[in-house]
Design a protein around this nucleic acid. Structure first.
Lengths: 210, 210, 210, 210
DNA sequence: GATGAATGAGGATTCATTCAT
DNA sequence: GATGAATGAATCCTCATTCAT
């Protein structure tokens, strides 16, 4: 659990944004150094290499991701649907707040060749499935959820829909009613809309209620 | 509607695969030329530039995409749910058959700066929404579908889930039952599984039936 | 004394213009082929190579240059000053009519390394000096011209001034009185002006009369 | 007024020589880097690009050119003919000392399409004419110089003759009396000869005296 | 710890030319 | 005779990284 100086964090955030905007290979260390207003050599100096910098971005964001589900899962006062609702809320909130990072992860998970970053992504996925699956399975066993539900694909729907929201954002924004809404407000509006939509979807498919 | 020679098509397909595997900027024209077994200069000679080559890949795949919905939409013997089922089947089939291209499109749609390719993607999206929305809207008006359904997000679910299937593929494959299944067979299995899952999802959310 | 087909002449003229505009190395055979509206391969096919094409341009223009002094020199009815006047007229006329070629020759004569083209230029210079010098020398011997005149430098003045007129053209044209004069007319005006100026110069330096 | 390091100056001078010898397009950055004994990347690193390097050569030489006339012009103790004599001396000296640069300038001024370098040349020309013309005009008004003299063409003669001397150099050198003269000595001899010739020319045309 | 200079490998593209037809 | 396709060398430039200070 590395601790970064302010300067290092500056590089990290700039890198995250540029990697999101133009892709890893589309971004040069020069670009990053310039926008972060540091010497080019600093990037290799601080992070070892461009690739290690990407890895650092991942570790930085993932450490936050990791904990936030675990605490949820261990809470035993909530019913399974409540837990899923909370999960959806958190995911929607997190992914829309971390659009740049999600964008990078989205891209990197598609790369064919193995890499430290892909390993990190894989680990996170396994971990997440390991936490969520029991919630559903347990609820299926005690009859709260229907049995014939494809949990793996349901997760794909969860992530896929949220990820798709980002490219679809400009599409939704083109509707006249959002023309003059400020970006922040629009993002909050989106969070609510997406969250409500996903909850409905999950409830329908898992409980046949509406 | 350009017509390509066999050699040009060879370049096109190799480029598609490499762009999918390593991203546009992660792929060099040298890589493409080498794998396609042509002289480096041929790529500029045939397509003008690396970027134009990407564009050519897009136009090539998109021309096919374009027509296949239109004919579906104009068929008036099917009910709206039938139409959506057919749509899901086609999309699942198409996207899983064109994984490489979908992978590229997935990446490119995330780029911040405008480009001819992004314009093509945007146009396709607008066009698709323009064709699908009427089906749902009409069914909502005559009471076949429920009214309070977020069609835009439903499309995000459709595309997002299918796109997410690709990264999730290796996840699903890691289950012991698929360990020795040949790739082709596994893909067909996936098509069926994803298709069935999505149909169920759509039916649940649009009609509350199961 | 090669004879060229119409197509070959077309290439020759286009090449002359482009070599003048952008230099030999700054002009690609593609440019020439495109502007001359012929297949790229034709240039090598007709002329052997790009360099041979330049040579062809030189030979073509120089053959014309060669004869026009000789006939003048052999005319014995004119006095020496008359001969020089006629020479000036012809040179001014020729150089301003063949601006493109003169431009190329100007450039090529400055190249350090030897080349067939430089040899051609050298030969022409030697030849011209061989023809002009006797006129002056003879007139100096019979007292018509002053003796202490640097004939070599006088020739440099003749060529140098005319060559310099081309770059200076746009300078002169920027004067308001020529703003709306058509190019052809302006060129004729220039010829007269330059010719008169040079004659005056020669007369002054050679005879001290005005 | 950029200040260059020794290494940068090395590149500058090598570039100047090679551009003079083989033209801008005929010289590759590889050639320059090799002769200047620096890494190829240094040229872009220091000057931005090949074109910017040419521009740097121009700015470097022109800054020197600029000042040396102004101080002359403002000197009020000299008569107009003295001023012109001093001007001729300086020009001959300068141009023959900076043969490489003059060669480049000669070539570049002939290019058809506009470029930063052509702008620099144009500015210099305008500036020079602006300084020289008043000397002549003033002398014409007070009757020292004859009125019907074409000042613009006289400048063309000045520059043209000097420029023409360079190509003519090898021509003059071929005379037997200079066969064994060392290069430096020959250049000094030339300066004197050209300078004397031009002064005589100017005096003759402007004052009709000898 | 921090940096400007320097490097060599590799980027995409264009070049003049040749080949098969 | 004439041509479109094809080629490999060379173009300028940028890359991520390292070095000396």
């Amino acid at each position: 659990m590395e601790v970064y100086s302010e300067k290092q964090l500056g590089i990290l955030f700039v890198a995250e944004r540029l990697f999101a905007d133009k892709g890893f290979h589309g971004t040069s260390v020069r670009d990053i150094a310039q926008e972060a207003d540091v010497n080019i050599a600093m990037i290799s100096y601080y992070f070892g290499s461009k690739e290690k910098l990407l890895e650092a971005v991942f570790r930085y964001r993932m450490n936050a991701s990791r904990s936030f589900i675990q605490e949820l899962v261990q809470n035993d006062t909530m019913g399974p649907m409540e837990k899923l609702y909370a999960l959806i809320d958190r995911f929607v909130n997190k992914l829309l707040n971390e659009q740049n990072f999600q964008c990078i992860m989205n891209r990197e998970q598609m790369n064919r060749d193995q890499s430290p970053v892909k390993d990190l992504i894989w680990d996170l996925k396994v971990e997440m499935m390991g936490l969520i699956q029991p919630i559903v399975t347990k609820a299926q066993e005690d009859g709260t959820f229907y049995k014939d539900v494809d949990v793996v694909l349901l997760m794909s729907t969860l992530f896929g829909t949220i990820h798709q929201v980002m490219p679809a954002k400009s599409f939704i924004r083109s509707e006249p009613e959002f023309a003059h809404m400020p970006e922040d407000e629009f993002r909050e509006y989106l969070k609510i809309r997406v969250s409500a939509y996903l909850k409905k979807l999950f409830k329908a498919i898992l409980t046949h209620e509406f």
